[in-house]
Simulated scan of single mutants.
Amino acid sequence: MQSHALEMAHVAATARTHLGRFNMYAGIHKALRALMADTLITVGRTDPTDAADVAHASTRVGELMDLCASHVVHENNFVHPALEARCPGVCGSVARDHEGHLHHIAHLRDAAQALVGLEAAEREAALQALYLALALFVADNFQHMHVEETVHNTALWAAYNDAELIGIHDALLATIPPAEMMLVMRWMLPQLNAPERLGVMQGMRAGAPAPVFDGMLSATQGLLNQRDWTKLARGLDVPPVPGLVVG
């Protein structure tokens, strides 16, 4: 317990030290944690006697696995090369984690897809096995993301200025298909704190076509509680009244 408390104190101190630095992990990891937790809960409460319920759980796990696999590729193609260029060797353990994650992703995807072809009597055991395997995957990824947000961020902040980090991040974002981006935003925006959310939407308004921004703003309104929506609308200087969204 003491060791854990000391570790948490160190992490908190590190986070305070680097407040204001560009953090390319923060938003996507909040989205992934939320999607992972919600998917795990969905599988855990799935009714094995209800074919529609089982099909929904299968689809949700597949959706999560696709996003996790894509996330691994994005980090391998953009973040790790940047780290290795100026901090050789820092990616070793995380890169090995990524290899393991891809194996787990393939297994979980296959297990989820197999659910829909099972007889009713077989579903309960299969769902429980999937639930337990998914729980371990989520736990492993939570620890993995902690390392990235502490060890990797420390290395990135020491080796790159914010303009360089934003350039790496923007290059990564440019490779993400629209459907994947919409899924990420669906799970990211409600999890961000108010200043983070405002910053994302201000960046989108500055860089995206007006119809794209208007569509995302309307979608975001449906994802937020009234208090959070009012804060965002005030920050963007748009009417906070439902249905009155102005680009």
Rank of each mutant, 00 (worst) to 15 (best):
G27D: 07
A37W: 03
T46A: 13
N23W: 00
I41R: 14
P48N: 12
V61T: 06
M36E: 15
V54R: 08
H18Q: 02
G27V: 04
M24F: 02
L35C: 01
A55R: 13
D38L: 12
Y25S: 00
G62V: 01
T42C: 07
M24K: 00
D38H: 11
P48L: 05
Y25E: 05
I28F: 10
A34T: 02
H29L: 04
T42H: 12
S58C: 04
A55D: 13
L32Q: 13
R45A: 04
L35G: 05
F22A: 03
L40P: 10
D47I: 01
D47G: 06
I41T: 12
A34E: 14
R45G: 02
G44K: 03
T49Q: 05
L35E: 15
D50L: 09
G62S: 11
D53H: 14
A37S: 08
A57R: 09
G44A: 03
H29T: 01
A31F: 07
N23K: 04
T59Q: 15
L35D: 14
V61E: 10
P48K: 15
I28H: 12
H56G: 11
V43N: 04
F22S: 01
H56D: 15
F22Y: 13
T39R: 08
G62M: 10
M24T: 05
D53E: 07
R21C: 00
G27C: 02
A37L: 14
F22N: 04
H29Y: 07
K30D: 08
P48C: 08
V43I: 15
Y25A: 00
P48I: 02
R33C: 06
V43M: 09
K30Q: 14
T39P: 07
D50F: 04
T59E: 14
E63H: 12
A26F: 11
